[in-house]
Design a binder for these strands. Sequence first.
DNA 1: CAAATAGTGTCTTTTAGACATTATAAG
DNA 2: CTTATAATGTCTAAAAGACACTATTTG
Lengths: 303, 303
Amino acid sequence: MTDEGTVYRQADDYDRRMSPYDPSAFPPFAVTVDLAVLTVRRHALCALVVRRGEPPFQGRWALPGGFVREDEDLATAAARELVEETGLIALSTRTAPSAPAAHPAATAGAAPHPPAAPPATAPAQDPPAALGKGAHLEQLATYGDPARDPRMRVVSVAHLALAPDLPAPRAGGDAHSARWAPVEALLGHEDAFGRDEEAVPLAFDHAQILADGVERARSKIEYSSLATAFCPPEFTVGELRRVYEAVWGVVLDPRNFHRKVTGTPGFLVPSGGTTTRQGGRPAQLFRAGGATVLNPPMLRPEV
Amino acid sequence: MTDEGTVYRQADDYDRRMSPYDPSAFPPFAVTVDLAVLTVRRHALCALVVRRGEPPFQGRWALPGGFVREDEDLATAAARELVEETGLIALSTRTAPSAPAAHPAATAGAAPHPPAAPPATAPAQDPPAALGKGAHLEQLATYGDPARDPRMRVVSVAHLALAPDLPAPRAGGDAHSARWAPVEALLGHEDAFGRDEEAVPLAFDHAQILADGVERARSKIEYSSLATAFCPPEFTVGELRRVYEAVWGVVLDPRNFHRKVTGTPGFLVPSGGTTTRQGGRPAQLFRAGGATVLNPPMLRPEV
DNA sequence: CAAATAGTGTCTTTTAGACATTATAAG
DNA sequence: CTTATAATGTCTAAAAGACACTATTTG
């Protein structure tokens, strides 16, 4: 039914170039991982950005990232970068392309591995680190526009990390090399441009990566228990609700939220304790339950 | 709070190695695209597979794919491969990672595999092509396990394509170089192993890629109008229902399905005509509406 | 006629969302 | 006391799902 022989016979071409005996037969790419690390700080969804010290985009903010090493898996590289940037240990890295019903429980995914401390390189002040804490880590998408890096052909496998609120990199500072910034400002929510320092567009295609990561997070907390990744090990229903409110940018009814979240099997398990850290009546403390898929889901309010 | 200097100062490292003046400073990768092309044939979800003519995995079935060219975007490469393999024109390719309102699509981990096909091997008869037709195309996930291809380091950016039923590659044939095969058989649905020819595991990590693609499709038709990508330009409600039944592997109530699908704004628009190609009372013909996000969603029946 | 598919309606259960009320802390 | 937050309950509207019934074709 089609032109003979031409159609899916590109395979010939493939094998010829795939031959290890002719390494110059295929175009070489650099492969990196970039990280969209999100957290909730002061009731706002924030991302970790680092300031670039060299061209291109010198002085601009960018997402943290680095090269994938010779014998390193993509998930391993992302976990390594996450440790290097934040001290966070990846708690879950799934091969699965997340889907509601398919998201298996994933706990330990990528191994911690050797942080491999770079020698003398850095003055490196204010690390936003919180060693010993865990974060959710998953692959986001891959970006490979030939022009995305002016220096060479780089394909970046972006990852999304969700972490509990971490200590500020350095309170009061202003010209540091790393910081948490509200995603609204980073993504230039129209009217925000020109006002704030971080309203300058991110380097490379990192604004697109971040936007994709934010949308992934926003949609995924609907159908999974991932919102708990933004919370400390023990948290209250109110704290979890404030996570949803910050990530979605909406206000939720505390009573309906409480009823729904406590009624979803496997979402939360009471830890026994209570706290008054939010003021008011003591609230029950919970831990994340084993469920990864929420049924029924938490639905974002309509437009 | 963390080890000084080591943390996010990988930027130095990054920039040093990124320098175009030292191309040997970063490890070179081959980058490919692999395609999980899905369609619905004879009430079963099927995938396009090609037979490998050379080692490794000689004689095994694999997903179609090929190298990303020097100055080619990832989406462009995937669209090119799709045309080469099937004659299908990519109708939609989104950079966006996940499902809009809901569900995150995928994140994937690692896996290897380049499809390789033998040159002389193929008489290349039966292309499952259907020139001039369109298909949905989107990025799925990226697989980069260092061992996924025994020959060299290959990172593959897998894509998912959804197409209407196409003419069989070659009816009656049995040892062709390309064919549609039910995903159940390809993924070795337990009891299916050993019975059928395609019960032999796919080459490389293609079973993982295909499984991820199938799960992406299954979840995405819940919250988007993507199921129409499996249908011809004009289709009936019954035909659309059979798509859902095939993809999900369930039986749906025709009456509730009809009420729901016609009641979802923007999902379907009547084209005016009717058809009796399914037998019985003439059915109204519809086209896909403009809506991409379904509200309310079509929910998969529970376990 | 029977058989098959299309399309509409009706009823019950479940869920979402609006909102009242009570409980227990801090200041 | 007031104020803030937590937790439970009640009501209504919408949606899901089970299922009866009618409509229009082919054989």
